[in-house]
């Protein structure tokens, strides 16, 4: 039996703390971008620059941020990208609420009626923020798929090549084994074993 070749690269097991750190880092970065565009779309007069069309904040930005988050987390399992999009949405909604009620939190005003936003505006923000989840989730899954196909790490590339080589080697071995077996069978058919004569 041929001895198995040892891999030239050893794949290190991914630490859970590293995964958590990566997820938190990229989702926070995404949540900040989403919060800015979301809040400034509802209250453009407070933004130093024009935040653009509402569609940008509601569809494009959450989709883009989810996509990048998924792509950046593509080295991990699929479930990490999915959990990442949930965390991203949670963080974004949390940040939006913090900014919306900042005057109350800081004690600048004591009453909801004194806030710089109306009840109707706040209701719109709350209702619209629900749509962040599906959009960022779709973006995240798409980003994960894109990252896996087009953005594999060097380690991943080497391991894939090794896997291809291994698979090819096993395939060749199997082929030669089958060929050998067929040859033996054919030989047996051509030269049947002499049956021992029966003794009287």
């Amino acid at each position: 039996m041929e001895q198995e070749e040892s891999s030239p690269i050893e794949l290190k097991p991914v630490k859970r703390s590293y995964v958590v750190l990566m997820v938190l880092g990229w989702t926070l970065a995404s949540a900040v971008i989403i919060t800015y565009f979301f809040f400034s779309t509802f209250f453009p007069e407070f933004s130093p620059i024009d935040p653009g069309d509402a569609g940008l904040a509601f569809l494009v930005v959450p989709g883009f941020c989810g996509f990048v988050t998924g792509a950046m987390l593509s080295e991990f399992d699929e479930k990490v990208a999915v959990y990442g999009s949930f965390i991203l949405t949670g963080m974004a909604i949390g940040l939006i609420f913090v900014v919306l009620f900042l005057p109350l939190i800081t004690g600048t005003v004591q009453d909801m009626t004194q806030l710089g936003s109306t009840d109707q505006e706040r209701q719109s923000v709350v209702l619209s923020s629900i749509f962040l989840l599906p959009i960022s989730l779709i973006g995240s899954i798409a980003g994960k798929a894109f990252g896996e196909v087009y953005l594999p790490s060097e380690e991943e590339k080497v391991s894939r090549e090794l896997l291809i080589k291994d698979t090819k080697r096993w395939h060749d071995m199997l082929q030669s084994y089958i060929r050998e077996k067929i040859r033996k069978d054919e030989e047996e058919v051509k030269e049947p074993k002499e049956e021992p004569e029966e003794e009287d």
Partner: peptide
């Protein structure tokens, strides 16, 4: 993300000051 954070900070401060 850092640029958005800066813009979000300015926007929040403006909102806070306006409310005040």
């Amino acid at each position: 993300s850092f640029l958005s954070f800066g813009l979000l900070y300015v926007t929040s401060v403006n909102y806070l000051n306006y409310t005040e």
